[in-house]
């Protein structure tokens, strides 16, 4: 059980920094096709911002509710990644061969680009949820009944 930090400096800085970090994480995630970055790093940055919210504001604060809700998304990232592969199978190609995603009006290279974006989102969700979930497992005891009972 993590209690809120009692320093006003840490609280104000956290209030200001956490949205900036989340924005930067989204930027890294979607800019990964054009520069350094990608799904893994973007997911870790997103997860770390939520971990920072837990560390600064405590488990029960309203700002930590997003992280608590994110715990329910465990496995969603894997579902997206493998689901894109399955869609390629349905389209008549090999597993994860994005050229066989059936989207009308897109040439093959654009389909591959879209497949890369989708799988990167999958990786990001998986990594972010795993980071939050490990932090919750290490720190929370009373919080578990809340999160399992809804």
């Amino acid at each position: 059980m993590i209690r809120p930090h009692d320093s006003i400096i840490v609280q104000s800085l956290g209030r200001f920094l956490i949205p900036v970090i989340q924005l930067f994480g989204l930027y890294v995630l979607f800019f990964g096709q054009y520069g350094p970055g990608g799904g893994f790093v973007g997911g870790v940055i997103l997860g770390t911002s939520m971990v920072l919210a837990i560390l600064v504001f405590g488990h029960d604060a309203s700002r930590s509710q997003l992280s608590k809700k994110a715990l329910h998304g465990d496995g969603l990232g894997m579902l997206i990644f493998a689901g894109v592969g399955g869609l390629c199978l349905i389209g008549g190609g090999e597993f994860l061969n994005y050229a066989h995603l059936h989207i009308p009006g897109l040439e093959i290279a654009a389909r591959r680009s879209l497949g890369i974006v989708l799988t990167q989102i999958g990786v990001a969700i998986d990594v972010a949820v795993t980071a939050i979930s490990i932090v919750f497992s290490l720190s929370a005891e009373e919080i578990i009944e809340d999160s399992t009972n809804g």
Binding site: Q33, G38, F81, L96, A109, I116, T119, Q120
Partner: peptide, 20 residues
């Protein structure tokens, strides 16, 4: 792949099974 970053295109397209 229309992806300028070669690292991303290798990781997520050519070698996407490894990444999965």
């Amino acid at each position: 792949t229309h992806t300028p970053n070669v690292v991303t295109s290798v990781l997520m397209d050519y070698r996407s099974l490894d990444t999965m």
